[in-house]
Amino acid sequence: MANRPPENWRAWMAEVARDVEAGILGPECSGAAAMYPESLLMATDSVLEAFEAEVSGLLEPSDDEVFGAVERVVLALNAVDGDASHGGAGYCTEEREQLCEYIDRTLGEHGVDVAALATRRGINRAEITDAWRAW
């Protein structure tokens, strides 16, 4: 199963904290945890968990069913990204890339040929989230 991006973000914050404590990084880096407040991490995990459950329930899905699942997860992630309760934290370039890769990998793990799906829609594999993505 693909690692959810919030797992990567938590690991990165722990690594930065260890490096600050060890003196490898300066004290100015100690605020790295503000990039990923727990509210953002938990909300993102919740959205991705729902996506996993939806995709695992798709048996021999049509392209429209798969794109419906992609649309729902992307719109839910848009809501998380735009939620002011995270103190202005949201998805930047690296987070966007990890989220898109996660969506692709999760579909693939559940038997969806993402490259073929994209080709049938006349888009590149990396563009499957673009129609709905605001982050």
Rank of each mutant, 00 (worst) to 15 (best):
E21I: 01
E21S: 12
E21H: 10
A22T: 02
G23H: 07
I24A: 09
L25I: 01
G26R: 02
P27F: 02
P27V: 05
P27N: 08
P27C: 01
E28N: 09
E28D: 09
S30M: 14
G31R: 14
A34F: 14
Y36G: 05
P37L: 02
E38Y: 03
S39Y: 03
L40E: 08
L40P: 04
D45R: 06
V47A: 06
L48W: 07
E49P: 03
A50M: 05
E52D: 12
A53G: 11
V55M: 03
V55D: 01
S56G: 11
G57M: 12
E60Q: 10
P61L: 06
D63G: 02
D64F: 06
D64N: 11
E65S: 05
V66N: 06
V66K: 08
V66L: 08
F67A: 07
F67R: 10
G68F: 06
V70M: 08
E71W: 04
E71P: 07
V73I: 08
L75A: 03
A76T: 02
L77T: 05
N78M: 06
N78T: 05
D81I: 01
G82C: 07
G82V: 04
D83W: 01
H86A: 04
G87N: 06
G90N: 00
Y91E: 00
C92L: 11
T93D: 13
T93H: 12
E94K: 12
E94I: 12
E94Y: 11
E97I: 15
E97H: 14
Q98C: 09
C100F: 13
C100N: 15
C100Y: 14
E101H: 11
I103L: 02
D104F: 09
T106P: 02
G108H: 00
H110K: 07
V112D: 00
V114C: 03
A115M: 13
A115C: 11
L117Q: 03
A118Q: 09
A118F: 06
A118E: 08
T119E: 15
T119L: 15
R120P: 11
R121F: 13
G122H: 13
I123E: 10
I128C: 07
